[in-house]
Design a protein around this nucleic acid. Structure first.
Length: 574
DNA sequence: GCCGTTTTCGGCCCGACTGTTTTCAGTCG
């Protein structure tokens, strides 16, 4: 059973308890558990089987730990089934309608017997909801809109997509008179792999037309709310965007608040309370006197809570507050630490540009090396290379290198890991390559054991020195294949194989939490773009974002090394 | 349900907005 499934048990319990009007703090405990297990890289099942006490995890106590043991042992959970029996099956779905929560859903069911989207839609259209207390015509309209949005199925957007919308919008808003500062916050600022909406914070003069300009933006489909300090719109692509205007004296606390995450903020506010302080988006205040003690900058807010500034990418309540308290925050890797790029394709397989063009673009980024890693022959659709073509290609790389000074093109290949774990090219030709990236591109639907053994066998080949996109996922499009990552990473360490964070924004593979586990296990990592054109070399930043969210420092990533030391690290692991 | 150098019981983050109301409940982030 996957962690995600275990998380779902608790998320469902939380919803069912909400619909029964249970104690909100009890509900939060289940929501927390769902978040904790959903975020976890290590397999919960494996932890339980090895006898680990889950109560060691903050937020997990007696009750939930017992429930997990039951899930692992029986695949079921009696408590969940009992809750399901108490709540009509259609109600949880109604909670996904924006603006509708457990109280209203329960009211509709108790009074009108509504237990499905269709019934709710009919009742709203027939004007029956307005007869209930606390309901009116506008509420009905809102519910109908919410149902329509839900049916359109617009969910989250890839970070790269969110960033490009944010950049365009910020560039546009900047032109409004009186705008002094604009700062995207939220999950975008934390560089989460997907974003659900955009929160843009602003400082501007009182008479600034910022809000008018915002709601008049070309790409706006619907204006949801418009006020002096807060406006909300939905863009044509379905992305929800809020713009909020803050006072300069509250910008730091506002930025802190809107950057989140929710769990990080709750932990921080709780910490403020312990110190007789109250934290909100307006600042930090003494509870007794209501005196404001911080708010202008984020540094200030964290400082009065006796903490150093915690980088946005770490604010997930995954131990960053404890680490900050002990002065043990990592010195996170930066884009400028990157010395080169170790996976890319040219015209020879499925890329768009030549070796020379890739070199030119890489030099412009300030790199001192790249590795050209074409596909191997098994990936026919990508025009993969066989032994003969690869030998010729390596000669071409030699020729390019002969003309370069202060820059080196490493001879590489992205060799396919075949279904049985053997490689798609002979050892004789692989020996000629300096960078051999082993990757899986086929038979994604194997059982976990089989897939794990397949990859481990490939890693044992002494010619393989990198593992490419280790889980094969495509964000929002394709689930990772089933694999025991911990075993794979262990094998990578034992066989001196560097584990890749694929920076391609559709992949970001390893994920943040997996990369963090890899680091903690002692693995060496690389960040590579997998670029298929010279322009795509720019996606390195997404890999760095993921690495930062994984708590990685420059020393954890081999392509922060200068060439000579990189080559040594590939050969010897040091 | 979780947690504890103020506690094993009694707390548990905070404020805005909306739509419905004449002071507030529900929802959201």
């Amino acid at each position: 059973m996957e962690n995600k499934q275990i998380a779902n048990f608790f998320a469902e319990i939380a919803e069912l308890l909400e619909l029964q009007g249970e104690n909100p703090f009890r509900i939060r405990s289940y929501q927390n558990a769902a978040r904790i297990f959903g975020d976890m890289s290590e397999s919960v099942v494996a932890m339980v089987r090895s006898g680990q006490d889950l109560r060691e995890i903050p937020g997990i106590g007696e009750g939930i730990s017992k429930k997990i043991i039951e899930i692992v042992e029986t695949g079921k959970l009696k408590f969940l089934e009992e809750q399901r029996a108490k709540v009509p099956a259609g109600l949880p779905e109604l909670l996904r309608i924006e603006g509708l929560g457990p109280k209203k859903v329960k009211l509709f069911y108790d009074r009108l017997g509504i237990d499905s989207l269709d019934k709710l839609e009919d009742a709203a259209k027939a004007g029956k909801l307005r007869e209930l207390e606390g309901m009116g015509e506008k509420s009905e309209e809102k519910i109908l809109k919410g149902i329509a949005t839900l049916r359109r199925g617009l969910g989250r957007f890839k970070l790269s997509v969110g960033l490009s919308y944010a950049e365009a919008l910020v560039a546009y808003l900047k032109k409004a008179k009186g705008v002094k500062r604009l700062e995207p916050s939220g999950s975008l600022r934390r560089r989460c792999e997907t974003v659900g909406d955009l929160d843009i914070l602003a400082i501007c003069a009182n008479d600034s037309p910022l809000m008018d300009n915002f709601t008049a933006y070309d790409d706006v489909e619907e204006v949801i709310a418009k006020g002096e300090t807060k406006s909300s719109v939905r863009l044509r692509c379905g992305l929800h965007v809020d713009v909020r205007v803050l006072e300069p004296g509250s910008f730091g606390s506002g930025l802190q608040y809107f950057t989140g995450s929710k769990a990080h903020n709750i932990a921080l506010r709780s910490r403020a309370n312990d110190r007789g302080l109250k934290l909100s988006e307006y600042g930090v205040f003494e509870i007794q006197t209501d005196k404001k003690v911080a708010g202008k900058s984020e540094e200030e807010v964290y400082k009065v809570l006796d903490l150093p500034l915690i980088p946005p990418e770490l604010r997930e309540d995954r131990g960053e507050i404890e680490a900050a308290e002990k002065g043990e925050l990592p010195k996170l890797i930066e884009l400028s630490d990157i010395h080169g790029d170790l996976q890319m394709h040219t015209k020879e397989s499925d890329g768009k540009d030549t070796i020379e063009e890739m070199v030119e673009a890489a030099k412009n980024l300030g790199y001192e090396y790249i590795a050209i890693t074409e596909h191997s022959k098994a990936v026919r659709i990508a025009n993969g290379l066989d032994e003969k073509r690869l030998a010729e290609h390596l000669k071409r790389i030699d020729k390019v290198n002969a003309k370069l000074s202060g820059f080196r093109v490493l001879k590489g290949i992205e060799v396919d890991i075949l279904a049985d774990g053997s490689l798609d090219l002979s050892d004789d030709i692989l020996k000629e390559c300096e960078v051999v990236v082993g990757s899986v591109h086929s038979r994604f639907n194997m059982e976990e054991k089989e897939m794990t053994q397949r990859i481990i066998r490939a890693l044992k080949n002494p010619n393989v020195n990198f593992l490419g996109h280790p889980t094969g996922r495509l964000i929002l499009e394709r689930e990772p294949y089933k694999v025991d990552l911990k075993e794979v990473i262990k094998a990578a360490i034992d066989n001196n194989v560097i584990v890749e964070i694929n920076a391609y924004p559709d992949r970001l593979d390893l994920r943040d939490v997996d990369a963090r586990m890899a680091k903690e296990m002692g693995a060496k990592l690389s960040i590579s773009t997998d670029a298929h054109s010279k322009l795509q070399l720019d996606v390195m930043k997404y890999g760095v974002f993921t690495a930062r969210r994984a708590w990685l420092e420059a020393k954890d990533v081999v392509n922060t090394l200068p060439l000579a030391r990189l080559l040594k690290a590939i050969r010897t692991g040091t």
